[in-house]
Design a protein around this nucleic acid. Structure first.
Lengths: 282, 282
DNA sequence: TTGCTCCTCACGTCACGTGAGGTGGC
DNA sequence: TTGCTCCTCACGTCACGTGAGGTGGC
């Protein structure tokens, strides 16, 4: 270290365009120690040739590396493969982050359009979530419009009762079709289901099966079943606008229902199993 | 709040796919208070209809809003314009972040190519930085190849000496051209300069002017002047590969030079004033 | 002597995650 | 009684920024 080239921390900071606090931090972190320390005053002095190391640190920080990795990259004891590996990883992470942000941007745009159309925050919030596989007892049958869908659930509960079982999770409904005309009657192909805590044998009417784990676009509807169509519509629209498509039958989960309660307080969750739509490029 | 629909925090957390710690935090933050508290045990109980608010919080978080803004968005006391404003701002910020990340990705790719070619971290680190305007005393003249560039600096220092002034900042050189053939001699149009602390009157030979503030691609060269061409090349290449172009004469700053010292310890900073190249789309 | 630069703690940041140590309900 | 769930602190995170209170050099 040459005396004549030693700079005080403030001068060195100005040259490197960073704050004194940052140099303090790098000193403490061990990333960039001053070339000399005044033993009396504890003043830090930096040699001009330390500017190269500082620049390298700043450049790597600018590429998105955390200080810990920068320390490794400067340590000079890693192989070419390790060096390349760290950069390739960083490249992949950055690429992925960009994709995530772009999907976010699409969702923001969707939301903004909704706000402009409705004049307020949309009634239905749509969330993407990963749902676990679920063991269920179910009855699948076409049901004519206007018929009581609850009846199937009652049959399943009766079946469980025979087996001395009770479900602690809410019942659900799977829509295998929309309403369609069959023999002059509007019918819908639905599957009523109740989650099971343990495996059971099948029965002629009640089938035991596992619903697969899936990525779901979800929303919650509060109110009676007459108005739930709006929630379906909102979900459908969100799925389209955000570049997804339906991958399996939609589910309707009866979180809070009951014959004795006011239907306006019913709470129902809708889940649309979705996958990315490859045709979507936004 | 209906008794029958109250959930313990663990159940509610499972429904919403979040951690209990997060619910604790939202409670403390005031974002989502439990519907009921057991006065004895301090157990939190959540009503099922609070799931809608939780979903809204999670959806807004997913759009990138911080909790403080989510609280505002849920407060319901902001106008449609404010609501739209917040979303438009978030949209613009997200857009900008994507652009920044994409530029970062380009720099990472450049670096990776360099590592592959050189088999190690590149010798010259290139940094972008904003440089302030600088008042200088300068002499601009063509200089034949091989001639002493230092002579102009000496003239300027002599001039300053006459004015009872001294510069505390390092001298620099501006390249107005590359080497070109003039009257059978290879010449370069350079401007030698020394920063000034105060304004001075012009002199016939020494001009006083202000170098404009600029965005600079910079690197530091350690060693004698014979090898500084490599640093110029490295900078030139970086500028091209990252979608910039030269916007003004390159500068060479003599951070650590001196006749009495070993030229291998010379430290020189190169600065290329740059601007974005609009033709560049990566 | 007065500014200016520098020093060393210590605290704050943002949205939780992770124990530690203790209590309540079946 | 034994697990399980829940409680309230308290600390850690990442890379510094920002005082507070004090000292050194021209």
């Amino acid at each position: 270290m040459q005396e004549h080239s030693m700079l005080k921390i403030g001068e060195f900071a100005r040259l490197g365009q960073i704050s004194i606090a940052t140099l303090h931090y790098y000193d403490q972190y061990g990333l960039l120690k001053p070339g000399a320390l005044d033993p009396n005053t504890s003043y830090r002095y930096y040699a001009l040739d330390q500017l190269a190391r500082l620049h390298r640190i700043l450049a790597l920080k600018d590429l998105g590396f955390p200080l810990e990795q920068i320390a490794q990259l400067l340590a000079d004891d890693l192989s070419l493969e390790q060096l390349q590996g760290m950069f390739r990883l960083k490249q992949a992470q950055t690429q992925q982050m960009i994709e995530i942000e772009q999907a976010r941007l699409t969702r923001i745009a969707t939301r903004l359009r909704q706000i402009e159309q409705e004049g307020k925050m949309p009634t239905y919030e749509v969330l993407l979530k990963q749902v676990d596989a679920l063991l269920i007892a179910s009855i699948r049958e076409p049901i004519p419009m206007g018929d009581d869908i609850e009846r199937s659930h009652k049959k399943i509960r009766a079946f469980l009762h025979e087996q001395q079982l009770q479900s602690s999770q809410p019942a659900l409904l799977l829509f295998h079709s929309r309403y369609e005309l069959h023999d002059d009657v509007m019918e819908i192909d639905v599957e009523a289901a109740v989650p099971l805590p343990v495996m059971l044998p099948d029965n002629e009417q009640v089938k035991i099966r596992t619903l697969p784990a899936d990525l779901m676009a979800c929303t919650v509807h509060t109110g009676d079943m007459l108005s739930i169509g709006r929630a379906h519509l909102a979900l459908h629209r969100w799925v389209n606008e955000n570049g997804y498509q339906l991958a399996a039958p939609p589910r309707q989960i009866y979180l809070q229902h009951g014959e004795e309660m006011d239907p306006r307080q019913y709470i129902t969750e809708l889940q649309f199993p979705v996958r990315r739509n490859n045709a979507h490029n936004n």
